[in-house]
């Protein structure tokens, strides 16, 4: 780890100003930043502690049903918050399916949106990585890429966005609130927040230097049952092979196919950003649940998917998981048990 200066910001404006120079980075929970700084995968020379910023640590609901979440709300608190559990269970479950209790206690809402990929060459100082060193090349394309993306990648980068929380936020149409170094505020829809890698995989979000995430808002929950299904190698503390956040509004009909009024779904673990295809959702809207309709939805969701060897299995895995989640949710009013235990 390179030597850095540590300062604590007391206002958002101060944090934004101090975080503006190249080499300056805000730190909140630090669960990702410190891991990356120790082996010098990132090399901040100024760390601005934003954990004491006022008024960013609450979850509130306005009269129109919108919920505002402060950027410093810990992941653990957010998942456990009654408003979230009651109205946005997909978000609670997504958060609780990630990391460990200790990490969720430290990690914040804003920080989770910015967590870096877990791509193996990205973490290996001896490997080539365009994210770390633009133009260096990518050692994942033809290398250890079992966990890498089948969608949204480019010849420069196939690194997966590892966040579970962001997949749920994507299906909930969250809006991210930012204060800029100039002191102005702006909002970014979650759909636009993460960037596809293209030729600049080092540029991962719409944030500019000095931008501070102050929070996010969730519109009132859409109708339907919310589920988060995370497929992973082990039962806990593992990144997703595939995950599906879904909100399915359907009429269960005991002896016939349910009728789907609306379906929203986003996928994680397979793409360079949380993956949601509106056309795929439209293919299911106001339709009976049929294999054809599900196939159309899956085809549209996975259009353009390509494997790179070790991760080829993610294409059928994503299709199967998506199909199952939609069908099962449409049929079942009770929550699925993801553990396998009965």
């Amino acid at each position: 780890m390179k030597t850095f200066t540590y300062t604590r910001a007391s206002t958002v404006a101060e944090a934004a100003k101090r975080a503006t120079p190249a080499g300056a980075m805000p730190i909140a929970g630090g669960t990702n930043l410190l891991d990356l700084a120790k082996p010098e995968l990132i090399n901040p020379d100024q760390i601005i502690d934003i954990t004491r910023l006022p008024d960013l640590n609450t979850v509130t609901r306005t009269s129109d049903g919108t919920v505002h979440i402060g950027a410093l709300v810990p992941n653990a608190d957010l998942a456990a918050h009654p408003l979230i559990r009651q109205h946005y269970p997909v978000l609670s479950r997504a958060i609780l399916s990630g990391a460990s209790p200790q990490i969720r206690n430290m990690a914040t809402t804003g920080g989770n949106l910015l967590q870096r990929t877990r791509c193996i060459p990205f973490y290996d100082p001896a490997a080539r990585c365009n994210k770390r060193t633009p133009g260096a090349g990518c050692d994942a394309l033809h290398g250890p890429n079992r966990m890498n993306a089948i969608l949204g990648g480019s010849p420069s980068c196939i690194a997966v966005n590892p966040s579970d929380m962001a997949v749920a936020l994507r299906v909930l149409d969250a809006t991210i609130h930012v204060t800029t170094a100039a002191g102005t505020t702006r909002t970014i829809p979650i759909a636009d927040f993460h960037l596809l890698p293209g030729n600049t995989p080092d540029h991962e979000t719409r944030l500019e230097r000095g931008d501070i995430i102050t929070g996010l808002t969730l519109p009132p929950p859409p109708p339907g049952r919310q589920v988060y299904r995370k497929v992973r190698d082990r039962a806990s503390y593992a990144f997703a092979l595939v995950s599906v956040a879904a909100i399915i509004d359907a009429d269960p009909t005991p002896d016939a196919s349910p009728h789907i009024r609306s379906a929203r779904f986003a996928l994680g673990g397979i793409a360079t950003k949380p993956w949601r295809i509106p056309a795929a959702e439209a293919a299911l809207a106001d339709q009976p649940l049929t294999r054809d309709a599900l196939n159309r939805a899956a085809d549209l969701t996975l259009a353009g998917a390509s494997g790179h060897g070790e991760n080829d299995f993610k294409i059928p895995l994503a299709r199967r998981t998506l199909t199952h989640v939609i069908a099962h949710t449409a049929r079942n009013p009770i929550p699925m048990d993801p553990s396998g235990a009965t």
Binding site: R118, I120, Y123, D124, A126, A127, D139, H142, G143, P144, D233, R234, A235, S236, Y237, A238, F239, S339
Partner: peptide, 28 residues
């Protein structure tokens, strides 16, 4: 879970931390 594949190009083990080298968690 447990495996540490070698990248045949570099000769390096590909799992070098406990996020990638999986052993049973409590939930397992």
């Amino acid at each position: 879970f447990e495996a540490n594949p070698v990248d045949p190009r570099s000769g390096q083990f590909t799992a070098r931390d406990l996020a990638n080298y999986h052993v049973a968690s409590h939930a397992d």
